[in-house]
Simulated scan of single mutants.
Amino acid sequence: MSESVSKQRDGRLDMAKGVLIALVVAGHFLEGMNDWTAETVRLPLTMIYSFHMPAFVFLTGITAKPHGILRRIWPLALLLVLFQTAFLLASPWLDPEATFTWNTPYWILWFLLALIWWLLLTPAIHRFPRASVVLSIAVAASASAMPFAGYPFALGRTLTFLPFFVIGYLHGKDILNWCSSARGAIRGWGVAAAVALPVVLFVLDVDNGWLYGSMSANELNEGAGPGMLTRTALMLVAAIMTAGFLMVIPKMPGTAWSVLGRRSLAVYLFHGFIVKAADPYLPAVLAGNNALSLLLVAVLTVGTLALTSWRPLDAMVRRIGRPRAATAPPRSAPAGVREREPVG
Rank of each mutant, 00 (worst) to 15 (best):
P152C: 01
L220D: 07
E219W: 01
A238F: 06
L286I: 15
F83K: 08
I137Y: 01
R12Y: 08
L45K: 04
A335E: 07
F111Y: 15
A124K: 06
V297W: 01
V343L: 05
E39V: 11
A335T: 12
I175V: 14
A193H: 02
I69A: 04
F164G: 07
F161Y: 15
F148T: 03
R130Q: 05
L112T: 13
V337K: 04
E3C: 00
H171N: 05
R338T: 15
L286Q: 15
H28T: 12
N177K: 13
L295M: 14
G244K: 11
A239Y: 08
L59T: 06
A278F: 13
S332P: 13
R338K: 12
R42V: 03
F153A: 04
L295I: 14
M252F: 13
P44D: 05
I62C: 13
S50N: 02
T230E: 11
I137G: 07
L115R: 10
L155F: 06
W110A: 13
K251W: 05
T122W: 03
A224V: 09
S332G: 11
V343C: 12
S4P: 11
D314I: 09
G344M: 03
H271T: 08
N103C: 00
Y212T: 15
Y106K: 06
P92W: 12
R322H: 09
L211N: 04
L204K: 14
S309F: 05
M241S: 12
F153C: 00
V134F: 08
A287H: 13
G344C: 01
I108C: 03
I108V: 15
G61W: 03
L115W: 12
W93A: 15
V25K: 10
A256G: 14
Y268S: 10
W310V: 03
L296I: 08
L113M: 08
R331T: 14
L170Y: 00
P330M: 10
A243T: 10
P198K: 11
A239G: 11
G254N: 12
G190H: 07
L292P: 02
G336P: 06
G213T: 05
F56Q: 10
N34P: 01
D10T: 00
H28N: 15
V259N: 09
V206L: 09
M53K: 03
G272P: 01
A266L: 07
A291Y: 14
I73C: 03
V285L: 14
S4D: 13
V285E: 02
R187I: 09
F270T: 10
N177P: 00
A90M: 13
L70A: 13
G223C: 05
P330T: 06
R331K: 12
E31A: 07
M53F: 14
L211W: 04
A55N: 07
R263G: 07
F202C: 05
V81E: 00
V237T: 11
F245R: 10
V5N: 11
T327W: 09
H126E: 02
F128P: 00
Y268C: 10
S181D: 15
F51D: 02
R71K: 04
S2M: 04
P54Q: 11
F165A: 02
P334Y: 00
Y49N: 04
L30V: 06
K173D: 15
W178P: 06
M316I: 14
Y268Q: 12
W189R: 09
A143C: 02
L79S: 08
T304Y: 09
G168Y: 06
R340N: 12
I108W: 08
M316T: 14
M33Y: 07
L80W: 09
R183D: 13
M33W: 03
